[in-house]
Amino acid sequence: MTIHQYNQQVKMHADDLYRFVLKNIRNQQDAEDIVQQSYKILWMKKEEVDLEKIKSYLFTVGYHKLVDALRKKKKTHLVESIPEKFGGSSETKNHDVKKAVNEALEKLPDLQKQLVLLKDYEGYSYEEIGSITKLSENQVKVYLFRARLQLKTSLIGLENHI
């Protein structure tokens, strides 16, 4: 991979990776660090990574960096302030379905949340998500279904509240 090709990958996928990480970790600085670390590793492995699988490789690295960051975060019991534009509890009162789903998403277990984001944001297949998260396709499918049911429940509650 040449410098030009690497820079093209930055241009094409940096936003997607950052969006995915930020949605999960809900901290801008941490998300930026993870993106930078992911691209740094990509550059170090530039001779080994297939050009057609760079995005998948980036998300795999980013995913594992994210999981590590979330574990550390839970240990320190830090309560991060969530920027308003990324969704907050106050927005659930707006009866906006989209925002209600985002709130419900935050309540999902980390793994289900990551799977939902990989599926919805990036459009990865079960197989690709399994490759990134080291899960089987069936596990991905089951976890996704459970996540959907939980999100649906939040919507039902919203409709009842209305």
Binding site: N7, V10, K11, A14, D15, D16, L17, Y18, R19, L22, E32, V35, Q36, Y39, K85, F86, V97, K98, V101, N102, A104, L105, V116, L117, D120, Y121, R148, L151, K152, L155
Partner: peptide
Amino acid sequence: ETILTPDTDIVFEKKELLY
């Protein structure tokens, strides 16, 4: 309705650090 759509307003603004 639970399917999320990416928020395209969220962008990584420090790409110059990566290039």
